[in-house]
Structures are given as structure tokens and as C-alpha cells.
Design a protein around this nucleic acid. Structure first.
Length: 582
DNA sequence: AATATAATGATTACGCCA
DNA sequence: TGGCGTAATCATTATATT
């Protein structure tokens, strides 16, 4: 048996490669059968993928995708990243579909100045409207100095067909000393990004605006008229803009101008939401395309989450040491009891519900009924239970649910992080189920480190047990001020305890309900501390999670509706930041 | 009274195949 | 393209136990 433990217990660190020769043989077999060599996949590349712990299925699927068996998937993949469709098609034609990396790089190069007019492939002169528009741009640019103040600019923009909201937002975000041309570019880029990345469901947004649709050249696919219902699709594999040290990393993306910081913001929620939820969230958060990432590509447990943020995505780096990547690495002691027919290398998502002791007992009895290998039907049933309840093998024929300690480990928290503050077991389970996967979040936040060498001010909403704070701490990014909003007293205590335990130099200010934080309070806090550099938080998923059988009512649900509180607070911080910077 | 346990489906997405 | 099976899923609440 491959996993029958002849190895001693000296190995807390398991050598993945030497330990899974069988698996690698299988991989090589798969590789040959897929004729990868013909497709230009070098052994090196393959070995790299294996080293990174990718499963047979993943590699096979990735190869199938890049081999051109499903062209729409390749296109969709990059469209999902927010790239322009024409550019994607062009890049694929130039580089061939089999090389996703080159395509990605080409797209990234083209987008280095994201959504800026010169590089854009939009045919500005394909209709009369655009000629007029271009002329207006030029003339206004020349005359822009003659406008004494914002009112005239606003009036001009409205005259040109932009809504008052768009115009005032543009002026607000761009500041005083910009020309009309820049403002129109600003708005237009925002419109285009909005249309290309997401669809529009709000009737208010559907009213005809400045003929952006007409500007689109007719080379677009007729079947995709770029109207309203372009759903947010989940990437497969769910790797966001890419995972550390992996080919296919996307380092640039078009970010709608209205979405730009400061402040930076970072929003999180479950990826597997009811239809329409992510579309709404994206639209409300400045039409940023969500970054969907499954933490199983970072650590040993799945955690499918969507992240909407306006952070740069180049030069990300991973926390050190990187988390254990497989179940065996994370929990070496389970290896001894792990049946050879349980092929799991990753755990499922950590949730609040826990398997009963009865489940463990039934599994044990079912296995004890046989000597040696149980029949296939028993195996299937046991595996099914293990996956359903996320069990690990802790003894002979004994599969048990995870302990809070083990969850902390998987999620990247310090050991006993949730033990402080007089926390009972149930609360620990609950708060951990609602927490960030720290390494994943830290990977996204890592770009902040060189930008804020002296530290940053953080507004942390729905802080929970402080996943964001732990991520920043582990990144060694100083937190000068953390204003934290968390309704659970237990969770507040945990964060407070963490703050003390880690000897934070900065100031932690804890509030309770986000709904009780008034706009005025926010502004006062910002004036007192010099503003916030980062607004971070994941709003409640109670009414969104697939595990909720009682009230999965989406964003209108009692708890999940607090998403709009996140938006309210973020809006206030953004506006105040803009004012403070003038 | 506080805490631990156990029962309670539906909504998605995706791969397969006709 | 569409039907069908497989799979996963930051949960809630009534009931049992201490």
C-alpha cells in the first residue's frame, strides 16, 4: 500500500515527492496519454506543476482547456479577467491557444495603461456620433482653461450627454485641475469597463447614456450583444489572477477609473452565491470584476471565495512559510490511519456544522465488519461521509471532525488564536467557519507592503476574529490604526487578545454594530487619524451560503444585507479621502 | 440555564453523452 | 444544445444533555 506507514514518525515535514511515487507515475501516464509532449509541454513544466501539488485531474483539465478543445473557455477565461474580447481573440490568434501564459502576458502588456484611450481598440470613427464626440474632445481640451470652476465643467459634461451623477463623480474623483477631456475620458472609461466586465441590472443604470454601445465596432459577436445580462462566471480552475509561482499569472488588469483608490478596499464573500448576488455586489463596488479564488490552491482546505478589491495585482508574494499544501502535510499524524482508498489530498470548506459522534461510530462499525479492504460499496459510503463532514482519520477505522486547533492551522491563524477571551467550543467553531483564510488574503494584501513601509491605517468591517489583521501582521505591515467593527463580543475579545499577544505598536479601536457607525463618526475618525489607507471586510454570508436551508434569501436577507452598510461606509471614506487630499 | 448534539434540502456548477 | 448524475456548500434550529 502506498500509504501504509513504513516511515517513522520523525517526519513532521513530509516529502511530498518521495512519498507519492505512485501518484507521480499516474501523472506521467496521464501525461503521455494526453500526448502532452506533442503539445509542447516540457517535462520541466510538468514537474513544476507536480511539485506544486496539482492533482491529475487539475493538470489534465488545464491541458485540455489550453489544447483548444473548448475555445470559448479560453476566451471566457480572459474575458472573466476583464480583458477586452477583441484583444483576447487577437492575442489567441497571435500566440496560439496552447500558450495561455503568452496570451496573458500579451494582454497584460496591452493593458499596462488600463482602459486608456490611445491603446484602446475601439474604433472611434465608425459612426457620426464618434466623430462629433472626438471633435468635442479636442475643442473642449483647448478651451478647458477658460472654464473658471467645476460648475461649468459639470454643465458641459451634462450637455455632452453624461448624467449628473457621472459628471459629479468624475469631478470628485479627478480633482479640480483636470481638463474636460480628461473628465470625459474618465467617465467613458468607467462606462466601458462597466459594460465589458459586468452587466447592468439596476433599471436606473439601464437608461440610455452617452452612446457607448454605438461606439463598439461591429466586429463584436452578434450572439453576445453586450447588453444587460452578462453573468459573472466562476473561473475554472478558481485561481483568481493566478497563484504563487504558477504559470499563467495575470499581473495587470483593467480597473474602472471610478474604482481607483485611495483608499484601497478589499471585500470578501462566498463565491457560490445565488444567481445575481455577485453581479449586484460588483455593480455596487464600482463594477470591479470579482477575483474568485479557492484557497485549496494555497492551503490544504478548500474555501471558494470572491474578492472585490482595487489593489494592484503585480508583485504579489506569499506568506512564509507557505501553508501546508496537502492533508498529510498539514496533519502528519493522520497518515498512519489514512486508508489507501481515500484519495483525498484536500479538505473541503470549513463550516459551522460538525459531524456527530454517531457518524464516526457508524463509519468505524462499517469498517470493522470486514477484515482488510472493505467492499467498494462500503468505501463509497465512507468516502461520501468523509467528504460531507470533512473528516480526517485519527485512529484505526476512526474518522473524526476537525478540532478548532486544526481549523486555525488550516486557516493560517496562530495556534489557539480563538482560545482567548473565554471562548467556548461552539463559538470557536462558529467564528472560525466565518473567518478568512489568512494566507489567501495575505497574498492579495502583500502588494501593500512596499507601498506603506511606515504602516497604514485600517478600517476593518465585520472583523470577526481578525483575519485581515492577522494577515497584515504576518506580512509585517505595521498597523498604525485599526478601527474595527464587530458585533460579536467573543470575536472582539479574540482580536483584542491577539493585539496584546503580538505587542502591536498601533492603536486598536473596537466598535460593535456597523449600523451604529454614523457617517459623521467616520469622518471624525478620519480627521483624527489622517484617514484610512485600507477598508477591509467580508460581510455576512448567512443568507447567501448554500448551507442555509432556512433563509437563503440573498442580499436582502437580514444579515447579508449588511453588505450595503459596507458600501455606505466605503462611500463615506472615499468621499472624505478625496476631500482631505485637496 | 447553558451548552452540545442532531436533523433539516436547495441551489448552483460542471462533466458526460446523446 | 439539453438532460442527467455528481458534487460542494463562511447555516439554522429544535432537541437532548450536562
Amino acid at each position: 500500500m502506498a500509504h501504509d506507514s513504513s516511515s517513522s514518525d520523525s517526519d513532521y515535514y513530509v516529502d511530498w515527492n518521495s512519498d507519492d511515487d505512485m501518484e507521480i507515475d499516474n501523472l506521467i501516464q496521464t501525461k503521455k496519454s494526453l500526448e502532452l509532449v506533442q503539445r509542447g509541454f516540457s517535462d520541466e513544466m510538468f514537474a513544476t506543476l507536480v511539485d506544486m501539488g496539482f492533482s491529475i485531474d487539475m493538470i489534465a483539465r488545464a491541458i485540455k482547456e489550453t489544447a483548444g478543445s473548448s475555445k470559448s473557455n479560453t476566451i471566457d477565461h480572459f474575458l472573466g479577467m476583464g480583458f477586452d474580447e477583441e484583444k483576447v481573440i487577437k492575442a489567441i490568434q497571435e500566440h496560439g491557444e496552447e500558450n495561455m501564459v503568452q496570451i496573458a502576458n500579451a494582454l497584460a502588456d496591452a493593458e499596462k495603461q488600463p482602459v486608456v484611450k490611445e491603446e484602446d481598440d475601439i474604433d472611434w470613427s465608425s459612426s457620426d456620433d464618434e466623430i462629433n464626440y472626438s471633435n468635442m474632445l479636442v475643442s473642449d481640451d483647448e478651451d478647458s482653461n477658460s472654464f473658471p470652476g467645476n460648475n461649468n465643467k459639470l454643465r458641459s459634461l451634462v450637455k455632452m450627454g453624461f448624467s449628473e451623477l457621472e459628471a459629479s463623480l468624475a469631478v470628485q474623483r479627478c480633482g479640480d485641475n483636470v481638463s474636460i477631456a480628461e473628465l470625459t475620458d474618465f467617465i467613458c472609461a468607467a462606462q466601458m469597463a462597466r459594460e465589458s466586465s459586468e452587466f447592468i441590472t439596476d433599471p436606473e443604470e439601464q437608461k440610455p447614456r452617452h452612446d457607448v454601445k454605438k461606439m463598439r465596432s461591429e466586429s463584436k459577436r452578434e450572439s453576445m450583444p453586450y447588453t444587460d445580462d452578462v453573468p459573472v462566471s466562476l473561473p475554472n480552475p478558481m485561481i483568481g489572477f493566478g497563484i504563487p509561482n504558477c504559470p499563467g499569472l495575470i499581473t495587470h488588469r483593467p480597473l474602472p477609473y471610478l474604482a481607483r483608490g485611495p483608499p484601497y478596499f478589499y471585500y470578501e464573500n462566498v463565491a457560490l452565491a445565488p444567481k445575481g448576488v455577485w453581479e449586484t455586489m460588483s455593480r455596487r463596488l464600482f463594477d470591479i470584476a470579482p477575483e474568485f479564488m479557492d484557497s485549496k490552491y494555497i492551503c490544504a482546505a478548500a474555501r471558494k471565495r470572491g474578492y472585490i478589491h482595487n489593489l494592484p495585482i503585480s508583485n504579489r508574494f506569499q506568506l512564509q512559510p507557505p501553508p501546508k499544501f496537502t492533508i498529510h502535510e498539514a496533519f502528519p499524524l493522520t497518515k498512519k490511519w489514512w486508508p489507501s482508498w481515500d484519495k483525498r489530498t484536500k479538505l473541503n470548506c470549513i463550516v459551522t456544522s460538525k459531524a456527530s459522534a454517531e457518524t464516526t461510530k457508524k463509519i468505524r462499525l462499517a469498517l470493522e465488519a470486514h477484515n482488510g479492504e472493505p467492499p467498494l460499496s462500503t468505501q463509497r459510503h465512507v468516502i461520501s461521509q468523509c467528504k460531507k463532514w470533512n473528516l480526517v482519520w485519527v485512529g484505526r477505522n476512526r474518522a473524526a471532525p476537525l478540532e478548532p486547533d486544526e481549523m486555525e492551522n488550516l486557516l493560517g491563524f496562530p495556534r489557539n488564536h480563538t482560545r482567548g477571551g473565554g471562548v467556548n467550543r461552539i463559538e470557536r467553531y462558529k467564528s472560525l467557519a466565518n473567518a478568512f483564510q489568512v494566507d489567501t488574503v495575505a497574498y492579495h494584501l502583500s502588494v501593500l507592503k512596499p507601498m506603506f513601509p511606515t504602516g497604514l491605517n485600517v478600517l476593518s468591517l465585520f472583523s470577526g476574529i481578525g483575519g485581515g489583521e492577522v494577515a497584515l501582521h504576518r506580512l509585517q505591515i505595521p498597523m498604525k490604526i485599526v478601527v474595527s467593527l464587530e458585533i460579536s463580543e467573543v470575536s472582539r475579545n479574540i482580536l483584542k487578545d491577539f493585539w496584546k499577544q503580538t505587542n502591536q505598536k498601533g492603536l486598536l479601536i473596537e466598535f460593535e454594530d456597523v449600523e451604529h457607525l454614523s457617517n459623521q463618526q467616520i469622518e471624525e475618525l478620519m480627521e483624527a487619524f489622517g484617514g484610512f489607507d485600507l477598508v477591509i471586510g467580508g460581510s455576512p454570508c448567512n443568507n447567501i451560503s448554500g448551507l442555509n436551508r432556512v433563509s437563503r434569501s440573498g442580499l436582502v436577507g437580514e444579515q447579508s444585507a449588511l453588505f450595503f452598510e459596507y458600501c455606505r461606509i466605503l462611500d463615506v471614506v472615499r468621499e472624505k479621502t478625496a476631500r482631505m487630499r485637496r
